[in-house]
Design a protein around this nucleic acid. Structure first.
Lengths: 119, 119
DNA sequence: TGTATATTTGCACCATGATGCAACTATAGC
DNA sequence: GCTATAGTTGCATCATGGTGCAAATATACA
């Protein structure tokens, strides 16, 4: 369950930190699908996209739907096939928006002597 | 298990798409911790950080360690306490690096008529 | 050395999500 | 309408990871 804590992040941050997007990017199969759509660089059917990884077609279908819901890819139906497209530019723009929000939310403060702790 | 598919992403992308970072940002507790460290804006102990959310102190300790391993926060031990610091600037920089890699990897191509498919 | 505080780690439990298979729906062509 | 192809969805299974509790470790101080 994705529970949001009260006052978890500054408003601007909270608006752009989309858990769905990060969850998608944290798993290898969706990541592979994003790369696959990128290298094909053209509307790609579920069957074509499935060549990216050794998983069942239904798994690919589900992941693509998840990516669509997360706003990372777009879908268009043509007859009996559905063609997916990824906009790396759009995804990059979203990451930059988050970066902007991060820098804006909390002014940096110099710390005296940050020493790494061995793990 | 985080399995990396062969040729999952262009080299430049693969180098910056860190699953550990995205996994951390996809869960509310680590996100709340990042925000907590940001608003305090100074080295923060585990006990202080734990005020961010209604979870056991051990959970906070584990999440902070995970964030440290993911390179998102830094830790320094002072006596019996460990003080954590987050650099929003550094995190923002990493996101921008990913954005750059995304834009560089696959030249955009215009699609004819991207129509959303109802879910 | 003994005690108190701060943090980490072992362990068990539970919710979530990824997966494969089979059944189902949608569409095209006969 | 019937059949074939493309994709989605239901269901069961399994791995992962978040969580709390208790025990262990690290350090300071008496």
């Amino acid at each position: 369950m994705v529970q949001i804590y009260k006052g978890e992040a500054p408003a601007a941050l909270e608006a752009v930190l989309d858990p769905a997007m990060f969850k998608a990017l944290g798993d290898p199969t969706p990541t592979a699908l994003i790369a696959r759509l990128g290298e094909r660089n053209a509307p790609t059917t579920v069957t074509e996209a499935a060549e990216c990884c050794p998983v069942d077609l239904s798994v690919v279908s589900r992941h693509l739907a998840m990516l669509r819901d997360a706003g990372i890819v777009q879908a268009e139906r043509h007859g009996r096939e559905v063609r997916y497209t990824v906009s790396h530019q759009a995804l990059a723009a979203r990451l930059r928006t988050i970066a902007d929000a991060l820098e804006a939310c909390c002014p940096e403060e110099s710390t005296c002597c940050p020493t790494e702790v061995e793990r």
